[in-house]
Design a protein around this nucleic acid. Structure first.
Lengths: 136, 136
DNA sequence: CCAGTTAATGAAAATTAGTTTCATTTGCAG
DNA sequence: CTGCAAATGAAACTAATTTTCATTAACTGG
């Protein structure tokens, strides 16, 4: 896909893609870098950022904004439109895809005159594990 | 309200509250500080952050997470549950309150075992002014 | 109203996340 | 193989936020 868009397929890009593809979880740029370095020491955090920006541009990954510490998490996109349910304790993320905001979106557009381009929907809650941990 | 919770009512807290109360727009910590300093030179950005954290804790203000540059915007809460429609060009924010996510939330809780605590819903779009500007 | 305590402040340093710059390297077209 | 533009790594930089700590001032009790 990179090639098709005229980008070069470099070792570092391979490495980043590899990490993202391998992981089921959502990772921060820093975490991705750590994992990349394990197999490819010398790969710079900068390249990770650059690759992530590229992938995000191409729509292959997307970002999550969670909690108080407004840090952007990057994650693998499970193909297509979807949203996140984030555990407020451990940060674990569950994806879901049906959000049914079409009507609301339409009404908002009419009421405000905005041309709506997209939306960000995230739920916060406590995952089963963290809930269980409380009762220990 | 501060007093009721055992916090002191300091000049700087008054000043921050004043600015937030006066403004209908959403402000960044930096913007709030600028305005505070106009009337109260010497008030530190630090205190603004501290006051904002306090107010957010008490639920009197809330944050917005917008666009790519993951910076947390703080804003006045128009009382009660609501959401934001943010212009992707100029950043102007419109509030709306009916989101009708109850059913989705319930189903998610059943499916995932998460105890859902809240949600973050934001729409992005282009406001009437910015749309008009394009055609100039 | 005054004094004491203690929370709150301001300044500066520290931290954290992300971006920019630029000389060097390298993928890949020819 | 070779050349060159694209991509990289290191380091400097920007920006936002947090921490530290000595000083200040809000409230409480007298």
């Amino acid at each position: 896909m990179l090639r098709r868009r005229g980008y070069r397929l470099t070792t570092q890009r391979r490495a980043v893609l590899d990490v993202i593809a391998r992981s089921r979880d959502h990772l921060t740029p820093g975490e991705i870098h750590q994992q990349v370095v394990r197999r490819h020491p010398g790969v710079g955090l900068v390249s990770v950022y650059r690759t992530l920006a590229l992938l995000a541009d191409m729509g292959l990954i997307c970002e999550v904004h969670v909690g108080g510490n407004c840090r952007s998490y990057l994650l693998r996109r499970p193909l297509g439109h979807h949203h996140h349910l984030v555990c407020s304790d451990c940060g674990r993320v569950v994806d879901f895809s049906d959000c049914d905001l079409g009507q609301l979106e339409k009404r908002l557009a009419e009421d405000t005159g905005y041309e709506i381009e997209g939306h960000l929907l995230e739920f916060a809650g406590r995952c089963p594990d963290c809930r269980a941990a409380t009762f220990t």
